[in-house]
Write a protein that binds this DNA or RNA. Structure first.
Length: 736
DNA sequence: GCTTTCGGACCATCAATTTG
DNA sequence: AAATTGATGGTCCGAAAGCC
């Protein structure tokens, strides 16, 4: 006999009205895998069957009970047909659909007004290529003269036009041909979607959706915590579609469904563990697993690998952002490569293609492209990717600094940028900074040497006074940051993220000038490098410690000021008692303190960070001993000592080797595997100090017992997100 | 011999309909 | 309003197939 969960266990299973069902938590169904396998499920998380099989258990919830199909729709259809016949034969009658008709007409004439749906479920696809209606004649091209337009010449076009008149440049032929070709491929190869996420499972998608109330909760969280930073969805257009979809999760088109699940994923990932429990009475792990499975399935159903639909690509992008905490940067970077390739196939990287779309579509595509590229760049840094996309090899313009409400479906021309402070300020400023950086000499030297101007090498070092980044920093401050309000969370994020990024780029530019250069760095120049590093940490501390960034903290975790730490520690080793040393220790302490929750006092990354800082500490101890000065323990050392005591139980036996600071050196002794992740980032003269063998303190034997090999340290790959599984010490192997 | 797959029996739920 | 009906949805037994 089938054994359903008892009523006591699942109060919602008692008979009551549908409205009550909506308010009460729905009963827990068999997990997705047991449903699929049709085997008994104990309805726990994880369930016994999944535990036994050692697979991820994904809980599902019963959806609102489907209303019984009402035959009225069929009757109305008949009435409509008979009315049509009456109309055709000029027979007078009282039309039942007078109201409906006028509503439809009104909708079609005003469908482009602000607040109207960008595209309903039943409307044609909204992707740039999915709808011809969205294509504008190229005469309205928005390409400005100051931008060169790069348009890849389609080889098919060239082949077909070889024997035609030069004037006969009918690009519509090409488009038709392209569509026909794609259809042919679609027919020839029915199913290749399993290549990335495996085969589609038989799990019913609607069981993975949350209740409508929760859908709106998640949507609101997304609007509060995610959308202000990424701006890859158009709120006035999307909101209506989500409201519609939430009312009937059984009939959502696959692309919108993927987008909804990716929004759920992002909303959950923007929450703290406690916040998630408070809002949804479930752990982040459980909800994330459910929505990630839903998103994967919806993406598979949308055949995302061959998609031309922007919703689908946006969903893939948001999904990838949301899984950052549970993937290695290497895997994520590979997946982002897929997303970038899809974006390029759609053409959103190119103004020549974007000119063919409506203003709204083109603008949203630009936002998506930039967001994708900037995320790919960061993950590429972490994964030590040799190929990054942030290069001057494409011409998609920076998104306009306009509000969502300034972008309307019917617009023919780009809206005029009037306000400095729009709801897209964060996305715009970081894209502008990215646009500037991708053309910088130092950036090209590190990431795109082949694209560097021929004289760039000669220029290095000779124009020391002429810092590209410094000049641009002033422009950004004048153009945007000075208008920002430090009380406004989004502005606060914009100010400190931008300044932190600029400090990082100044540091990189500094090393571009001096790395391998015959010019010797004066102390003042080294101090400048230190001040950039300190600035990186200070900006990061502002972001980490302010309550204003609570909702945006998921983004802050993406930018650990790794280079800043390296620079500071190197400086402190080189000049342990310099004038700025005390400030450097204080700044590190403040950042460490702000980061403490995310480090959580445990995990391999904490040990790495502690071991790294210990290098500077050891140099300080030696210098103080030598100078005969009194020892004052930096605050950060006390914090590390406290955290270490928590994570490493004191073993009995001979007392371990201790430094002046009281830190057990042995506790931080671990092998250093890992690939060279700083290969592209030369530390300049510090390399000399670090690896020459003699070191800066040749007369102090055994100075660096924990001398971490900075050139082989996987710092970029560290994930400081407390929600990350990786921070628990499960990776990398060999360090546990 | 163990595991997986899946047809379909069985049961719960609840909107619609009927009854009193 | 209560009882009844019947469509729909969820569970999981157990036979059959697959795998080692």
């Amino acid at each position: 006999m089938a054994t359903l969960p008892s009523e006591a266990e699942h109060p919602a299973s008692a008979s009551h009205s549908a409205r009550l069902t909506d308010l009460k938590p729905r009963r827990v169904l068999a997990c997705a895998r047991c449903q699929q396998r049709k085997v008994k499920c104990d309805h726990k998380y994880p369930c016994a069957t999944c535990v036994k099989s050692r697979v991820q258990c994904v809980t599902t919830q019963a959806p609102r009970r489907r209303r019984r199909r009402f035959p009225e729709r069929e009757l109305l259809e008949r009435v409509r047909r008979y009315e049509d016949l009456l109309s055709q034969h000029n027979i007078k009658f009282d039309p039942l659909h007078a109201i409906a008709q006028s509503t439809e007409e009104k909708e079609s004439s005003t469908s482009n007004l602000e607040g109207s749906y960008e595209s309903g479920d039943e409307q044609p696809g909204i992707g740039p290529l999915a709808t011809n209606a969205a294509i504008q004649p190229p005469t309205t091209t928005t390409t400005s003269e100051r931008h060169r337009v790069y348009e890849a010449k389609p080889i098919l076009h060239a082949l077909n036009h070889e024997y035609r008149d030069c004037d006969d440049d009918d690009s519509s032929d090409d488009e038709v041909r392209q569509v026909v070709l794609q259809e042919a491929w679609d027919q020839a190869i029915e199913n290749d979607t399993h290549l990335l996420f495996g085969w589609r499972q038989t799990v019913d998608m609607y069981t993975l959706h949350p209740q409508p109330v929760q859908i709106f909760q998640l949507w609101q969280l997304y609007l509060d915590n995610v959308n202000p930073l990424l701006k890859v969805t158009h709120t006035p257009g999307l909101q209506g579609r989500i409201i519609n979809a939430a009312g009937n999760v059984l009939e959502i088109n696959t692309e919108l469904e993927a987008l909804m699940f990716s929004i759920y994923c992002m909303a959950v990932s923007s929450l703290t563990e406690d916040g998630c429990q408070a809002a949804f009475a479930e752990s982040k792990a459980v909800l994330s697993a459910r929505y990630q499975l839903g998103c994967q399935q919806a993406l598979l159903n949308s055949r995302f690998q061959r998609t031309t639909n922007r919703d689908c690509l946006t969903a893939l992008y948001l999904y990838l952002v949301s899984i950052k905490g549970i993937t290695t940067p290497q895997s994520l970077s590979s997946m982002l490569g897929v997303a970038i390739r899809i974006a390029q196939r759609i053409g959103i990287h190119s103004e020549a293609y974007l000119a063919k779309y409506t203003t709204l579509e083109a603008e949203m595509s630009r936002r998506l492209w930039w967001s994708l590229v900037l995320f790919d760049t960061r993950i590429g840094e972490m994964a030590d990717s040799k190929a990054i996309t942030l290069l001057p090899s494409w011409d998609c313009r920076v998104p306009l600094n306009v509000n969502d409400s300034d972008l309307r479906q019917e617009m023919k021309l780009r809206p005029r940028v009037q306000a400095k402070l729009t709801d897209a300020i964060f996305a715009v400023v970081r894209s502008e900074l990215g646009d500037f950086i991708r053309h910088c000499k130092f950036h090209l030297a590190f990431f795109g040497p082949a694209l560097r101007p021929a004289d760039a090498n000669a220029q290095r070092g000779t124009d020391i006074e002429n810092s590209e980044v410094e000049s641009y920093a002033k422009i950004i401050e004048e153009r945007y940051l000075k208008f920002c309000d430090l009380e406004n969370p989004l502005h606060y994020m914009t100010i400190w993220t931008t300044r932190g990024q600029i400090a990082k780029y100044q540091l990189m530019e500094h090393h571009f000038r001096y790395s391998g250069s015959p010019l010797h760095q004066a102390e003042a120049q080294r101090d400048a490098a230190l001040s950039y590093a300190l600035s990186m940490l200070k900006c990061n501390t502002e972001l980490m410690s302010s309550p204003l960034t609570d909702g945006f903290i998921w983004m802050v975790y993406n930018y650990f000021p790794f280079m800043g730490y390296i620079q500071i520690v190197q400086h402190l080793k080189w000049r342990p008692l310099s004038a700025k040393a005390d400030e450097a220790w204080r700044v590190m302490d403040e950042n460490f303190h702000a980061r403490r929750d995310s480090l959580n006092g445990k995990g391999i990354f904490f040990k790495l960070l502690a071991g790294f800082i210990l290098q500077a500490l050891t140099a300080r101890e030696a210098a103080i001993k030598q100078a005969g000065l009194p020892w004052v323990t930096p605050q950060i050392v006390l914090s590390i000592r406290g955290s270490l005591a928590e994570i490493v139980p004191r073993a009995d036996g001979p007392s371990p080797e201790k430094s002046l600071s009281g830190i057990d050196i042995g506790l931080l002794d671990f092998p250093m595997p890992m690939s060279s992740n700083l290969g592209h980032y030369n530390m300049g003269e510090y390399d000399e100090l670090e690896f020459s063998g003699a070191g800066p303190y040749p007369d102090v034997p055994g100075l660096f017992p924990q001398n971490l090999d900075l050139d082989h340290l996987d710092w970029f790959a560290m994930d400081w997100n407390p929600g990350s599984d990786l921070s628990g010490g499960t990776r990398p192997k060999g360090l546990e």
